[in-house]
Design a protein around this nucleic acid. Structure first.
Lengths: 213, 213
DNA sequence: TAGATTGTTAATCGATTAACAATC
DNA sequence: TAGATTGTTAATCGATTAACAATC
């Protein structure tokens, strides 16, 4: 069977479905129809059914979708049922903030190491995790089966570090550095370009003001 | 003249153009063709020309685009030529990290206030800016012409705070809380849902591994 | 059985790419 | 002038929405 390719648009929507279903589950809602969900989430019922059907039939005619089942299934699709070992590269403000953000662990993303080039930080612990020198990073990844590297370093350092990560076979990079990384296709990259996001907001303010005046 | 609506897809690409043009400018490149830019940025030349033409003709036949001019024009479209006053609501790890991230000021986003509910933080200064109690937020916004509020608070507090912001006429919310805010259309919202981003990365790892095995 | 709601096909809409005349 | 490259129209592709038969 040829697996049909899932579009980026669908993938981008999955975490949002997951979040709403989690909330419904917590509220004790047992079943939900695409129409009801569409009302809550502000999307069309048609889109919801199309999206879910990319992964097979999760619903039942005349009944709707079982919330708990659907939640679990989407979790599996997102790979949230597995745990991931991750390291934080760059123990600056953002790196420390992410390390301190507990909620990722709840989803199975375990921070196993933090690395920095600044010797003053070596040995400092953040949420019980020691900051290590960059030189140890490659060996650490190999020895601890790290799948994900979080890049919270300046753009000037990002290229060098990403090459090192690729060399030791990292599976994925969560990139907060403001550059587009060039990595081979077996390495997954998700960019979080905060300044791009802020500029989009600036654009929206600008556009609204010049449009309404 | 009826202004044609610019699609979200185009807007999302603008900051990336801006970044690449800034780099070309810094390298001293004077002019660039859509074809050359397409090679560098990994998009089609056709898309580049279509995108730019949404805002009027920035180029010249037979010549291409003047890098400096194009950079400035896209900056104007993004509203980067104006300064914005912003406050950070929630002085936790993420709030502090963003406050310390200098680069936003370079783009004209000036942090004028930081607010928190935790009395222990009152008076503490982050990059020279005092943390103030939440009760003072509304007056502060009015008195200091704050346009943007950065929400780095838990989702449980986000609804209440967003209502307060709307009441005093905030223009835009940069939302890091993991909820979809409901605000009137004159308030612009840009979401940064970090856990959604991490889940997409998890999905990509998952899909790659099951696809290749 | 009758009503409800899915899964899925068909229709529409919008975004991307291709092509080329206009023009620097 | 000849060559290059835009601005723009037309063609293609993909994603969203509508519709409805299948079925619980």
């Amino acid at each position: 069977m040829v697996e049909k390719e899932i579009s980026q648009a669908v993938i981008a929507r999955l975490p949002r479905y997951f979040r709403y279903l989690g909330e419904l589950k917590d509220e004790g809602v047992e079943r939900i129809s695409s129409q009801e969900l569409s009302r809550i989430m502000n999307v069309t019922a048609s889109q919801i059914r199309q999206d879910f059907n990319n992964f097979g039939g999760f619903g039942q005619q005349g009944y709707g979708y079982n919330v708990e089942f659907l939640y679990t299934e989407i979790g599996k699709i997102l790979g949230i049922d597995k745990t991931h070992q991750l390291i934080i590269v760059g123990a600056g403000n953002l790196g420390q903030a992410l390390a301190n953000y507990m909620n990722f662990e709840r989803r199975g993303f375990i921070i196993t190491g933090i690395f920095d080039i600044n010797p003053e930080l070596y040995g400092k612990t953040i949420r019980g995790i020691q900051v290590r020198p960059m030189e140890e990073m490659k060996d650490f990844i190999k020895e601890n089966n790290v799948d994900i590297a979080v890049l919270t370093i300046p753009k000037s350092a990002a290229l060098t570090v990403s090459c090192q990560l690729v060399e030791v076979g990292i599976k994925a990079i969560w990139n907060f550095a403001h550059v587009d990384l060039q990595v081979p296709p077996q390495v997954q990259v998700e960019n979080v370009h905060l300044s791009d996001s802020l500029m989009r907001l600036s654009y929206m303010i600008n556009r609204f003001e010049s449009g309404k005046k």
